[in-house]
Nucleic acid binder design. Structure first.
Length: 263
DNA sequence: AAACCACACAACCGCATCATT
DNA sequence: AAATGATGCGGTTGTGTGGTT
């Protein structure tokens, strides 16, 4: 059932995004919202494919993104979630506000994996590494991994769960489209370390923060956040008729811009 | 100072899934 | 029910950067 490519291969630009392209994309989404990615490049005047636009937006330009390395607490949460969900990065990312699946995936591959191996833990099965065992990299594919998730026999998770029995459950972020199995899995995850408690409470605050308009579309207040972003990129806030932002948004967008300027 | 290397991260590719016709 | 199209996901690759020799 041959699928057509998502975009014309001819004339489509690849590689790193320029500031100008970012501006165009931000401007377009600010004006039109997120819809129909396939049409975005044409309408926004970009010589990119829709996929590329979506990726750029979700992984880099979104104003609600946190930047910088994952904290210890976030890292621990990723490990816990990975033990339950396997390489389902988007599911994991859904529980780390401001983090993207790509970011978590990268962090896993570059940092956490090595850390676990150093600790003598197999990053795939989350079981203790045996001397005669094959290196982690030689384990079966990620797809297999998803099918052979450990059943709570991992040392870290055991530790967490043991502690869970003596502590109140801390709710995970509800995800509407979680399967019942997934929900069950995730309900079993509790937060042990104080740092993680902190993370969750921060997250709760974030979600309750009136400056963050998590509206029915699942979108934060783009017009506010994006306008600031555009302002910082020499667009001029006045162009969009928006003139006030919370400190929180300012920090987030500034972080985004800092990273952008490094490019 | 230059060459080389390793690492981190942004971006791409192919496939799966879901929606629509 | 089948075909088609759009989007999302996960694996992989490419590139920039910093450290080392």
């Amino acid at each position: 059932m041959g699928r057509q490519p998502c975009c014309d291969k001819l004339g489509v630009k690849k590689g790193p995004w320029t500031a100008e392209e970012d501006k165009k994309l931000i401007n377009f989404i600010l004006t039109n919202g997120q819809c129909c990615w396939r049409a975005v490049p044409k309408l926004a005047g970009l010589r990119r494919c829709g996929k590329s636009c979506r990726l750029r937006w979700t992984n880099y330009l979104r104003p609600d993104l946190k930047r910088g390395l994952l904290t210890e607490a976030e890292e621990q949460l990723v490990i816990d979630l990975h033990a339950r969900l396997g390489n389902r990065w988007s599911k994991i990312a859904a529980r780390l506000p401001g983090r993207t699946d790509n970011e978590i995936k990268n962090h896993w591959n570059t940092h956490i994996k090595k850390k676990l191996i150093k600790m003598g833990i197999d990053p795939v099965t989350h079981e203790p590494l045996k001397k005669e065992a094959k290196p982690a990299e030689e384990h079966s594919s990620a797809a297999d991994n998803n099918q052979h998730l450990p059943e709570s026999n991992n040392s870290i998770i055991d530790h967490v769960q043991t502690s869970q029995e003596t502590k109140d459950n801390i709710p995970v972020i509800p995800e509407e489209n979680c399967s019942s199995d997934e929900s069950q899995l995730l309900e079993n995850i509790s937060i042990d370390a104080p740092a993680l408690n902190c993370l969750w409470s921060d997250e709760t605050d974030l979600l309750n923060d009136p400056t963050w308009n998590f509206n029915t579309n699942g979108l934060p207040s783009w017009d506010e956040s994006c306008a600031w972003l555009l302002d910082c990129q020499d667009f001029g806030v006045q162009d969009f008729g928006i003139d006030c932002f919370s400190d929180f948004e300012v920090m987030n967008t500034l972080n985004t811009l800092e990273m952008g300027n490094k490019q």
